[in-house]
Measured scan of single mutants.
Amino acid sequence: MQIFVKTLTGKTITLEVEPSDTIENVKAKIQDKEGIPPDQQRLIFAGKQLEDGRTLSDYNIQKESTSHLVLR
């Protein structure tokens, strides 16, 4: 499924993911596309910070959901 990640600069990154993917996996995909190390990434969805060990389905992130990327 596709999800979108919006950066603070207003850029939207499109990612191909599975509901069973962990947040860690998603951060690795963002690193592949954008070159941002996962330890600098914070992903926010529905006002919550997403934890590495959880999956997209844990957070009820469905296709075409948009989460926000904040850099630390």
Rank of each mutant, 00 (worst) to 15 (best):
M1V: 06
Q2S: 10
Q2T: 14
Q2N: 11
I3M: 05
F4G: 03
F4E: 06
F4R: 09
V5Q: 00
K6A: 07
T7M: 15
L8W: 15
L8P: 14
L8K: 10
G10K: 04
G10Y: 04
G10N: 06
K11S: 07
T12C: 13
T12M: 13
T12N: 05
T14C: 12
L15C: 02
L15W: 01
L15M: 04
E16I: 14
V17C: 09
V17W: 02
E18W: 13
E18C: 13
P19D: 06
P19L: 09
S20N: 13
D21K: 01
I23Q: 01
I23G: 01
N25P: 00
N25C: 12
V26W: 01
V26I: 12
K27N: 01
A28V: 12
A28L: 15
A28R: 15
K29H: 04
K29E: 02
I30T: 01
I30F: 02
I30G: 00
Q31E: 09
D32Q: 14
K33H: 09
E34D: 05
G35V: 02
G35N: 07
G35A: 05
G35E: 03
I36F: 09
P37M: 06
D39V: 09
Q41C: 07
R42M: 15
L43Y: 02
L43N: 00
L43I: 08
L43E: 00
I44P: 00
I44V: 10
F45C: 04
A46E: 15
A46P: 01
G47V: 02
G47R: 04
G47H: 05
K48C: 10
K48T: 12
Q49K: 10
Q49F: 13
Q49R: 10
L50E: 01
L50S: 01
E51Y: 07
D52Q: 04
D52E: 08
G53K: 11
G53C: 08
R54I: 04
R54K: 13
R54P: 03
T55V: 06
L56T: 01
L56H: 00
L56W: 03
S57R: 12
Y59S: 02
N60A: 08
I61S: 02
I61C: 02
Q62S: 14
Q62N: 14
E64Y: 14
E64R: 07
T66P: 08
T66A: 09
T66D: 09
S67A: 15
S67T: 15
S67C: 15
L69F: 05
V70C: 11
V70N: 05
V70D: 07
L71W: 06
R72Y: 15
